[in-house]
């Protein structure tokens, strides 16, 4: 009996310590969202789109992002390949979820800027396997979209990651995002999810996003490579970021339709 008593006592004594040590799902996501990403940034990124037959298309872009208060504006100029060169994309992302984002596309063949509908957050971004929401949030998560539950830890590539499961807050959000469940595996060293699984509204495993590269640039923890595999279509997208620069000036005047039309 004595050893059992000792064991039970030890367990009871250690329980509050374990509870204090394991953050809740909300706390983990809060830390993910607290990660600083700079007032502005300029970077080049390469998008590799690979279909189920292994055929890959590669697109290269220059992009700039800047916060205007809480509002985030992004402008992207496509430089390669030749058939999309000169295409530009400008978006104003608003914090208020009730307000649709504003988006414009410059089409060099028409030499015109087209207003484009603000996409549903769950729509895929310009032919990639990333959704507009994922591109907009840049590895962060809208806390009001989900109920978060911590699910302990999981070893991924030798790292112990915090597992958080999120279920949509309500049916409308589930429909808008096109998910029934999301599982994040957050690295507490960088407060980014290294592997995220998305399940569609029928509960099927839909996509997996893998953080393939991360670096600290100018003090900011920065994604350098991100891969997503769509399990349904076997289509995948890899985005690699180059020349990320948080320090050079990114003028406010860059985020205008006039600049979108002129190009860089």
């Amino acid at each position: 009996m004595y050893p059992l008593k000792v064991l039970l006592s030890a367990l009871l004594l250690s329980l509050p310590v374990m509870v204090l040590a394991a953050p809740s799902g909300d706390e983990i996501i809060e830390k993910v969202n607290a990660r600083e990403d700079g007032l502005h940034v300029q970077r080049n990124f390469t998008v590799e789109l690979t279909d189920r037959n292994g055929r890959t298309r590669t697109e290269k872009t220059l992009s700039y992002r800047r916060y205007f208060g809480d509002e985030k504006r992004t402008i992207i100029f496509y430089t390669e390949p030749t058939n999309v060169r000169g295409t530009g994309f400008l978006t104003f992302d608003y914090v208020d979820r009730g307000e649709d984002d504003d988006q414009w596309l410059y089409l060099p063949a028409l030499r015109k800027i087209r207003r484009i509908p603000s996409s549903d957050r769950g729509d895929y971004f310009l032919g990639t396997d990333f959704t507009y929401e994922e591109i907009k949030k840049e590895q962060k998560v809208e806390p009001e979209d989900y109920h978060f539950v911590a699910q302990g830890t999981e070893q991924v590539d030798g790292r112990e990651l915090l597992v958080v499961e999120g279920t949509p807050s309500d049916e409308a959000i589930a429909k808008e995002l096109g998910v029934s469940k999301v599982v994040w595996r957050v690295d507490p060293e960088i407060w980014m999810s290294r592997k995220t699984d998305y399940y569609d509204r029928n509960g099927n495993h839909a996509r997996t996003i893998t953080l393939e590269g991360v670096d600290t640039i100018a003090g900011f923890i920065t994604t350098t490579a991100l891969h997503v595999l769509n399990h349904k279509t076997q289509h995948s997208t890899r985005i690699t970021f180059h020349d990320t620069d948080y320090e050079s000036a990114v003028p406010e005047s860059l985020f205008t339709q006039a600049r979108l039309r002129r190009g860089l």
Binding site: R115, I116, P117
Partner: peptide
């Protein structure tokens, strides 16, 4: 003048 309303764009 142009504006977007959901999936519609008016020009």
């Amino acid at each position: 003048a142009s504006n977007a309303f959901g999936s519609w764009t008016l020009r």
